[in-house]
Design a protein around this nucleic acid. Sequence first.
DNA 1: AAGTTAGTCAACCGCCACACG
DNA 2: TCGTGTGGCGGTTGACTAACT
Length: 226
Amino acid sequence: MENTTLTLDKNIIKKGAWSKEEDDKLRAYIQRYGHWNWTLLPKFAGLSRSGKSCRLRWMNYLRPNIKHGNFTKEDDEIIVRLHKQLGNKWTVIAAQLPGRSDNEIKNRWNTHLKKRVEDEQTQVLENINHDETIKPNEAPQGSSSTYSSSNYHIPSDVTLQTYDYELSGDFWSDPFLVDIMSPVDQNTTPSDLYHNFGFHSSWDDMTMSEDLSWSALGSYSEYNNY
DNA sequence: AAGTTAGTCAACCGCCACACG
DNA sequence: TCGTGTGGCGGTTGACTAACT
């Protein structure tokens, strides 16, 4: 008897960039049948891709209402704030930015925001050291030439907490350092935030109906008869 | 114009959690 | 309880492109 199992032949699994034809096949299949099983889907859709690859392509680029690029300042602000609170919980952060995929947000952080935050951190640290060393009531009288490099030191009792403050609400004018280093509520866990944000997956709406399931199974039969 | 470097981002990989038999 | 399959997540890679020399 002929083997009709759906084990994917790893020798024909395609990798790399997706072509327009592949996108069209995947989009058309999911719009008609839903993504009832990512592992089997590529077979039925006529794609030589892994289920994971199909899922990633759909989630990041093909699903309806997905946005690409053109991050606004507000988008960046949300990402930075949530990353400060949650860390690398990209899917949770993405849930707060409709139309954005976790992958895109992760890229946004890694290529733009991370460096920006680090630069701001460095700048604020330098300012802290400077302010602690040169206090107006302690500054030496006379010309600035009386300063020597030995005047600059990092006070042993200076901690980041000393400079804690509440953000004014404007990401583009607020320094990052303290806000990053000392969360507003130390008792808040990522789990708390996860639930407090009312996180839900937009994919709940994409759950396949029973009818579609049967349609897909019909497709399965067609496949096996092929 | 050609070569090099840096930045960007799509896609893959490995791991983990969960469901199910 | 254990083994297996699947979906999902985050880290990382590598191809591509723009900027620079």
